[in-house]
Design a binder for these strands. Structure first.
Lengths: 153, 153
DNA sequence: GATTATTTGGACTCTTTTATCTTAATATAG
DNA sequence: CTATATTAAGATAAAAGAGTCCAAATAATC
């Protein structure tokens, strides 16, 4: 698996938030219902993203979670790094510690290229970009429903 | 992590075998010592590759494991598929079941491109290719030693 | 101030992956 | 036939990832 489940959930939740009116706090409960993710588990993940400054939280009635900066400034990479760390982008494909240009394994060069492709994709994609695409083409962010489900209520 | 630890060990072991004289059976114990992988764990992994027909095993004294076909016909992909399955190449980046061209998530297109880059790399790289590269440049397959360590004794 | 809606944080459980240990099966050599 | 070197297979253990639960903190509303 490229990304951990936590990371995937974090991405989905961030996209959901980016699809909302800017500044609005969304309760985690609502998110977990809509996205069909365990409430408690999602809570943990969002805490990480809040701690990293990607999201902002507010307690009490009318509280919830929102993006801490405009969605077009949040790269998928930001979320991946916050949750899964940089392992994916630094680790040797053959698991050798300290594998790098100075002391590479036979697969190093080819893997470095592939890895750059992954990095590029994650860095060049923003939340807003995906939300706009999802909205335009009514794509989905949940098991069943179309994208528009996210906007009802 | 892109590949499971089992898969990474499987790749290292297969490369080791591909670096050996064709037809020679290598005891798992020797492999696990050289590659610094737990003997019993490596045994399990090699069993999978043997079951898939990528490796061949032989019991008893002078027994061991060897490639079941020439190293230039074994793609890295063969080993990845045998151990980790096709999940990496088929799964939705946002974890949505059944995500595909017919019913995609907003990330589907971009991820499909990246995934094809990974697939291409794994399909276009053979064991022999990496062994030759490793031999030519004395690259490493273990934590410390250079590639040549593999050939001693 | 009491009640309610929310996030925070910690403890706990379940599952999967990784790793180890033990016994059985098989082949060789003497 | 016996001893030895090996793989095969199953049982178990340890670690990590995924998921649940509960109590505490905080903010709004009445």
């Amino acid at each position: 698996m490229l990304l951990s489940k936590s990371c995937v959930y974090g991405l989905r939740a961030s996209l959901y938030l980016a699809s909302k009116k800017e500044g609005e706090f969304i309760p985690i409960k609502r998110m977990s219902d809509k996205l069909e993710i365990s409430f408690h588990f999602l809570t943990k993940i969002l805490q990480q993203l809040t701690a990293e400054g990607i999201l902002e939280s507010f307690k009490g009635p009318n509280g919830g979670i929102r993006l801490n900066r405009p969605g077009n400034t949040v790269q998928l990479m930001d979320i991946v790094l916050a949750i899964d760390g940089e392992q994916l982008l630094t680790e040797c494909a053959l698991g050798l510690p300290g594998c790098g240009i100075k002391n590479p394994c036979p697969l190093h060069e080819k893997w470095a290229e592939t890895r750059d492709a992954i990095r590029g994709m994650l860095e060049n994609t923003t939340l807003t970009e995906l939300v706009e695409k999802g909205r335009a083409e009514n794509l989905r962010l949940t098991t069943d429903g179309g994208f528009d489900i996210l906007f009802q209520e």
